[in-house]
Design a protein around this nucleic acid. Sequence first.
DNA 1: ACTTGACCCTCACGCCGCGTGAGGCGGCAG
DNA 2: CTGCCGCCTCACGCGGCGTGAGGGTCAAGT
Lengths: 252, 252
Amino acid sequence: MTTWTVGQVADVFGVTVRTLHHYDEIGLLMPSERSAAGYRLYTDGDLRRLQQVVVYRRLELPLDEIARLLDGDEDPDVHLRRQREAVMQRLDELTDLVVAIDRALERDMDERPATTAELKELFGDGFDDDYQQEAQERWGETDAWKQSAARTSRYTAADWAEVKAEMEDVNAAFVAALESGEPATGEAAMDAAEAHRLHIERRFYDLSYDVHRGLADMYVADPRFTKTYEDLAPGLAAYVRDAIHANADRHA
Amino acid sequence: MTTWTVGQVADVFGVTVRTLHHYDEIGLLMPSERSAAGYRLYTDGDLRRLQQVVVYRRLELPLDEIARLLDGDEDPDVHLRRQREAVMQRLDELTDLVVAIDRALERDMDERPATTAELKELFGDGFDDDYQQEAQERWGETDAWKQSAARTSRYTAADWAEVKAEMEDVNAAFVAALESGEPATGEAAMDAAEAHRLHIERRFYDLSYDVHRGLADMYVADPRFTKTYEDLAPGLAAYVRDAIHANADRHA
DNA sequence: ACTTGACCCTCACGCCGCGTGAGGCGGCAG
DNA sequence: CTGCCGCCTCACGCGGCGTGAGGGTCAAGT
């Protein structure tokens, strides 16, 4: 049976000698033999194992995981399928990356709009593609939606961060009013409602008091909005609705 | 709220606080302000810069390079294009990997590397055990033989079928060049020679132009090789030899 | 006015997967 | 027997943070 030295193995498999030393050190791939002088001698079997290691490494799997995969008594078929899935996933990621780069190339980086993924990061699961789609079905033909879409499509992540901060300020005002025991028809609650309206007007679309009423009703009717508010404070959704109506009355 | 603390920024941009500390340490992103108590306070401008950093990081650019990009006056477009190239290359590699895994999965179904009998079936009598043995005597101690043996020992019947198909394509190119009346020093013949070299390099072992010359000489000197070529077309063996030499001259 | 608990701060060491010497022996060709 | 290349074993370094330890700060609740 033929054996190979580190240098030969390194050449054939396109890795460095140091890498083989490292794999020996950590016990991932220890050559089956050593010459009298202490030279590492790799056998056929060693090479087959290295072959596997190299493939897994190209998937950027950590070495200890590779060791577990190779040493476990698992079906190699299962490994391979896992490998395949991992690679496909990485392929998807990289494809996304290319798309991102292309977008970056198209628009100036400063003005690059945020992706849905980034928005999710900002707003959590509430900002779902599904939700976006439903919103479009609901409001798709309204001028408000068009206006909103036109504006937000140019928002950058930093813009969205500001939007989020503003929203939180408004919500905090509602919560404060609620917890102070003041009724929804009180001054503070109505002021918060007006701030809410102005926030939307500034960031998304023109918002008349009547349309604002409609929005308020939806906050109670639509469980997703309801949940957002109820998570902040129990009873907040209804409180917000009432405050918005009171504010609209005030400005009638 | 016109400035943000580390935690807020971290949440919004999906990075850790430690990461922001790190970026501060290395000077990649130092918050414009600090509170009296020493809290990092990030401004709008800081966020926009972080936005850029995050995008570049997803491209797996090293941080110092990102710093140079953001601070230097280099054209970001150029860099992005380079980056795109790199990602595309990685995409190709991974695609190859998927193909390799699929082949490995097929082999597991066949469950074994190809036997000599199967190889005979594919390649005819030329692929003889005797010949194999003689080849080993001749080349047995060379790195090329070891490399070739290491690779081919893992080839499946399907792999060998591909190898054979490739060989036939190369041979067909030689025949076509010969029958067109073009001299062995012509473009088409030299291209075929280069294809031949690359085929061997890809499937068996590294093949320098000089070694390729030696191989070419053997095709005329060794009756078994000569027969293979002469059976395809009279005069082909010598034609191939000359084409390979011409190609080697071209690349000298 | 005090306590809690969530944040924030600054060190400073650890981790992975090697790269990169330094200093010295082994094997083979001329 | 003299080169010279390839092999060996330490052992430190690096990038990009993770992960405490040890201690200050801030807003809310009591």
